[in-house]
């Protein structure tokens, strides 16, 4: 055995030094910069609407969009029924739903936003077991106007049940489960969520800012762009009908698209509980494609609890 050969002792130490130094520079040093980032409005909206995690998690092992909050537009006070001066967007976490990262680990919110959320927003009072309703508020911190997370269950007494009991289904948006669909279906293999800092401004909108991602997981930036960037797609196209046609078969609205069909996200039945006959639809579409039919077959309206509803809500939420 020649383990103790002197050169290798020196070599092993040099190796540790080199790799350790590399990790110091590429991991430890950037961590200070990243930890210093302060959540923006965008980050709070993203993490509150997506919830704990949109990738694989114990609370949703098959990525069915479970363990997710819903985003609700509240027009009347859920307790008194009195119309609010201004409609509020709230994020409803029903009892048992994992709370978002900024609530469980408030350091992630960044200086100021964390303090406001803890003191004014009372986020530490939120409990997974009983659920909570959050909203984004703004307040002054050291002379700066900063957004913060407000636990409306603690500050206003708005419980998840009270909000959902009064909510009109048209004002309920399943952005959280939609983000799960976005991750599960691999939308991000082609659609990036990162307009580039160089030439993308005009076509795809502004690149994200530092602080736009706090608490979001996964960020799903994407790297291999084969399709338009979607970070601000909701600002370019806010038509639910267009999205519906496009997801069912992209060639209905864009003949040259190479996007796959996502008709299977409609599930078994349509909005009226009628079974969707996919084979018939595809056969009729093929006839239309070959010019044997004047119009394409009708795209069925999706059911309220279908997976596609969440995905469309998520895409439209990307403002």
């Amino acid at each position: 055995m020649s383990v103790n050969f002197r050169e290798y002792k020196i070599g092993a130490r040099m190796f540790g030094l080199a790799l350790g130094g590399s990790m110091l520079i590429t991991l430890l040093l950037p961590s200070f910069d990243i930890a210093a980032s302060v959540s923006t409005d965008v980050a709070l909206d993203k993490q509150l609407s997506a919830g704990w995690d949109s990738g694989w998690q114990l609370g949703d092992p098959l990525l069915k969009g479970h363990n997710k909050p819903v985003k609700v537009l509240v027009k009347n006070d859920p307790l008194t029924g009195v119309a609010l001066a201004q409609a509020e967007t709230v994020y409803v976490y029903p009892a048992g739903t994992s709370l978002p990262n900024g609530v469980t680990h408030s350091d992630n919110l960044g200086a100021g936003v964390k303090d406001l959320s803890l003191e004014k927003g009372k986020i530490k009072d939120a409990k997974k077991e009983s659920g909570a309703v959050f909203l984004i508020n703004h307040g002054a911190f050291n002379g700066n106007n900063l957004p913060y997370v407000e636990n409306a269950t603690a500050t206003k007494g708005w419980t998840p049940d009270a909000v959902m009991a009064k909510a009109d289904d048209a004002n309920v948006s399943h952005v959280g489960s939609g983000k799960t669909m976005f991750v599960r279906e691999g939308c991000w293999w082609c659609h990036t969520l990162l307009p580039e800092q160089t030439q993308d401004w005009q076509a795809f909108g502004t690149p994200p800012m530092l602080g736009d991602f706090n608490g979001e997981s996964p960020t799903a930036f994407g790297s291999d762009r084969k399709a338009p960037d979607l970070l601000h797609v909701g600002s370019r196209n806010s038509s639910k009908e267009w999205m519906m046609l496009h997801f069912f078969n992209p060639r209905l609205v864009q003949p040259h698209s190479i996007m796959p069909r996502f008709d299977y996200l409609w599930g078994e039945v349509d909005a009226n509980g009628k079974k969707i006959d996919f084979d018939k639809w595809r056969a009729e579409y093929n006839e239309y494609h070959e010019g044997k039919r004047v119009a394409a077959p009708e795209v069925p309206m999706y059911a309220k609890d279908s997976e596609i509803r969440g995905l469309i809500d998520f895409v439209l939420s990307l403002k």
């Binding site: 704990w52 608490g215 960020t219």
Partner: peptide
Amino acid sequence: PEFFHLTGLTEAYLTWW
């Protein structure tokens, strides 16, 4: 990021790391 649920830019950066 997966073991300890690290989020945001930390997650994005460690993905590419």
